[in-house]
Design a protein around this nucleic acid. Structure first.
Lengths: 119, 119
DNA sequence: TCCTCATATCGAAGGCTGTCGATCGATGTC
DNA sequence: GACATCGATCGACAGCCTTCGATATGAGGA
């Protein structure tokens, strides 16, 4: 998962071979992992659609609405929701037998920016 | 790849079971596929780092700089670059023996927005 | 012409992902 | 207390993804 960049002196080889340029300092492993994890969580059509529905909803959405909206089995919907929850993009609460999901109000700013393309 | 949403009358079941809410109309399959493809292209730490380097570079970057910067084999770097190229995020040109990559000036606005989190 | 070097492509191995059917735990209803 | 329902979890399977070593391609130099 981490990126394992080699040491700085190799990174900027001072045009040793006539073609190479200095290159920007890499992002920190933590930042790169944070960003790629957010992108990966959104890299599935069903999850993009789920985020779209949640972004448009005034209130938390019941899981049963998702299972009705998609042509997928209930365990698959549950799987996608838990991926989004693991990525910190949504949160869930239980009311009686039902589980309701909404966008995480405490989302990282990176996640908030990332989902803003989804109208 | 496409999302296969069921018909609208199932999508808005009018609180049949006492828990369900109307839900936003789904995004079009084309839009969902476009967005999830962009996210998927960025859902890997190495590719995030590559985009970061390209975003910071004043000029196109030689492939040899990437193979020097990452602790990965040359075919693997080539693979990541071609994924970014397939997603329309980067373009490549050859000068002599070397290949140079830069951010695609004609990127879709969705792609441009998506990579803007990568400082 | 032959060799070297940079890059792309191929084929394979291993791990991760999306999907399903079956099951389980919890909650509400009769 | 028995039963039904919702949602999470488990186990399995197929497909994709990342990575590698080996090889092909193609340009420059001796």
């Amino acid at each position: 998962m981490t990126t394992s960049i080699v040491a700085r002196e190799v990174l900027v080889p001072d045009r040793v071979k006539g073609c190479c340029q200095p290159v920007a300092a890499p992002l920190s492993d933590a930042r790169v992992d944070e960003l790629s994890a957010i992108y990966r969580a959104l890299g599935d059509p069903t999850r993009v659609q789920i985020v779209h529905i949640l972004a448009a909803a005034a209130e938390p959405v019941c899981v049963c609405d998702f299972t009705a909206a998609f042509d997928l089995g209930q365990p698959t919907i549950s799987h996608h929701l838990s991926k989004l929850r693991d990525a910190g993009i949504v949160t869930s609460t239980k009311r009686g037998v039902w589980a309701f999901y909404k966008l995480n109000a405490a989302m990282t700013s990176a996640a908030r920016d990332a989902i803003q393309l989804i109208d």
